[in-house]
């Protein structure tokens, strides 16, 4: 049975991105890009986390807002990749 990675992703984003903006919470659907919570370095930090800790392989063409704009989008994207891999 596939494990939902949403809590891991949320934990990563709260620990690594929120302190920079002096915030304590972020909703699952809040835009990380439009609200400036994730810069270009943060994008690569997140990509590295998804590849090394979650275990998915990310293609450059997949680094788009539909997959990376919110915790919900990231989680759906990661779960989709894991299910394709038989995760």
């Amino acid at each position: 049975m596939q494990v939902d990675v949403r809590s891991d992703i949320r934990e990563f984003i709260v620990d690594n991105f929120l302190f920079r903006e002096d915030r304590e919470t972020v909703s699952d659907t809040e835009s990380l890009l439009e609200n400036g919570l994730m810069d270009s370095t943060g994008v690569l930090e997140l990509v590295a986390f998804l590849e090394s800790d979650i275990g998915i392989e990310i293609q450059d063409a997949e680094i788009v807002p539909e997959n990376f704009d919110s915790i919900e989008n990231i989680s759906n994207y990661a779960n989709s990749k894991l299910s394709k891999n038989g995760g």
Partner: peptide, 18 residues
């Protein structure tokens, strides 16, 4: 170089990674 990197952080990341 990225046009408005604050609003578009994915661009630099994708270019460099590519």
């Amino acid at each position: 170089m990225v046009d408005n990197p604050v609003e578009n952080p994915l661009a630099g990341a994708r270019l460099l990674r590519s």
